[in-house]
């Protein structure tokens, strides 16, 4: 007998009525109680110890900017080219922190660094 393709010849029987005791049991379940207050930061701190992290997807739903970085607004007037580079992890982390701190896009962050020369 296949585990996954469990076709049945006769599939026109109406749904069997559940045993009366389960309906009665379900009816006896009260409405949910308000939850006790727990500071979200307490919950987050505990979770972080287990490797959980913030992955707020609000930008996906609401189209907002990622926290810490300014959204790109409008098209760039100049022609653009793609630059893909591999770099040491420490430099990668440092560059991203710089961009986040200044709320710059990556290309703006590169320009800011070049302007310092």
């Amino acid at each position: 007998m296949s585990n996954f393709l469990d076709l049945d010849e006769s599939n026109n029987e109406p749904a069997p009525a559940p045993p009366p005791d389960l309906r009665t049991l379900v009816a006896s379940v009260p409405v949910s109680k308000p939850r006790p207050y727990l500071n979200p930061q307490v919950s987050d701190k505990l979770a972080a110890q287990h490797g959980f992290a913030s992955r707020d997807h609000s930008d996906r739903f609401l189209g907002g900017a990622l926290p810490g970085r300014r959204a790109v607004r409008g098209a760039i007037a100049e022609e653009t080219k793609q630059l893909s580079i591999r770099m040491p992890l420490s430099l990668y982390t440092e560059f991203l922190s710089f961009a986040d701190e200044k709320k710059l896009t990556y290309s703006e962050a590169i320009k800011a660094l070049l302007d310092r020369r």
């Binding site: 919950s43 505990l46 490797g51 707020d56």
Partner: peptide, 9 residues
């Protein structure tokens, strides 16, 4: 299916 704060909350 990720280890996020939404899950832990």
């Amino acid at each position: 299916g990720t280890a996020s704060f939404l899950v832990s909350r």
